[in-house]
Amino acid sequence: MAGPPRLGTPGPRGRVPAGPRAALAGAARPFPARGAVGAHAARAPADPRLDRGDDRLGAFANDAARGAALLEIARLLARHHAFWAGPGQAALRGPWAWQPERVLERAARMHAQLTAGGLSGPDGRPAPLPEPVVRAAREAAGQLPSLLAAAPVTTLVHGDIHAGQVLWRGPQPVLIDYGQVHASVPGEDLAHLLALRLDATDRARLGPDLRAVYRDELARGGLPLTDAELAAQERAGLALNLLSVVRQAARTPERGTAEAALKVTAAWEELAG
């Protein structure tokens, strides 16, 4: 089995635990030393296709270039997920282990709050979330136990995937910025890419090919999933994204968080329909 894709420095807030570092050190491709990614980025020429401030995954030259880049991101995610679900899994111990009981406990609390009157905002009063957002979050929180049970494969997810997290230089893109990395279901990253980085029109147009490329690359990395298993992963991952985004929108009522909550709610309603 091949090693992981070329990586930056993984770990919450830039810290790398000994287990994952050792796993990468023994992989087929080298693990860049601390600071190597920054040096790499400084040497890399500017790419006119990308604009880190664009949630639509960058200012690409045209739709074809943007679509091709999205497919590369899907492949990169799949290689990353396949490695950490396979040979890298043994390194995910202690605080890096998947802890579904904690995830479900938070979801249950959130469900109770949404049912009782809503999430609290920064002033302690109920946050003024739109009703469709509240309804979707309540559904996701209530369904999460069964959704996670239907998606048993876990891995190390990036947590904030978009084009600005990829260095587009050389024959293989490099995944960087691991400030949100954590153990979860692979579908969390896939759903983040589809629900939060694409609008409904692009999701309908590009989603089938992105899912197919992601599934095929997973299989090449030793993690074959059926269409049904991939759909279960995406549904569970979308629920996790929805709960996280809505929680943030309640705590930080800004335009960006409100828009993100509406986007992920729309994606949730699409899958439900």
Results as ranks from 00 to 15, higher is better:
residue 246 V to E: 02
residue 225 L to Q: 12
residue 13 R to N: 12
residue 63 D to P: 00
residue 128 P to A: 07
residue 68 A to P: 01
residue 96 W to I: 01
residue 61 A to Q: 10
residue 151 A to K: 08
residue 42 A to K: 10
residue 45 P to W: 04
residue 79 R to F: 02
residue 222 G to L: 04
residue 131 E to T: 15
residue 209 D to Q: 15
residue 89 Q to G: 13
residue 144 L to D: 03
residue 231 A to Q: 09
residue 260 A to I: 00
residue 227 D to I: 08
residue 244 S to F: 14
residue 100 P to W: 04
residue 15 R to D: 11
residue 100 P to G: 02
residue 105 E to I: 05
residue 215 R to I: 03
residue 122 P to Q: 02
residue 64 A to W: 05
residue 86 G to T: 06
residue 136 A to K: 11
residue 63 D to W: 06
residue 179 G to S: 13
residue 36 A to C: 05
residue 125 R to V: 03
residue 267 A to Q: 04
residue 65 A to H: 13
residue 69 A to T: 02
residue 54 D to T: 00
residue 45 P to H: 08
residue 7 L to T: 14
residue 22 A to L: 11
residue 234 E to N: 08
residue 222 G to M: 06
residue 34 R to D: 15
residue 162 H to W: 13
residue 116 A to W: 07
residue 4 P to C: 04
residue 97 A to N: 05
residue 131 E to H: 14
residue 192 H to E: 04
residue 162 H to N: 09
residue 250 A to T: 09
residue 211 R to D: 11
residue 81 H to M: 01
residue 108 A to L: 08
residue 61 A to I: 06
residue 237 G to A: 02
residue 90 A to S: 12
residue 184 S to I: 02
residue 125 R to S: 09
residue 164 G to H: 01
residue 209 D to A: 15
residue 56 R to S: 05
residue 178 Y to M: 14
residue 60 F to E: 11
residue 74 A to C: 01
residue 220 R to F: 03
residue 237 G to L: 00
residue 181 V to T: 15
residue 152 P to R: 13
residue 123 D to K: 05
residue 202 D to M: 13
residue 155 T to V: 03
residue 113 Q to S: 14
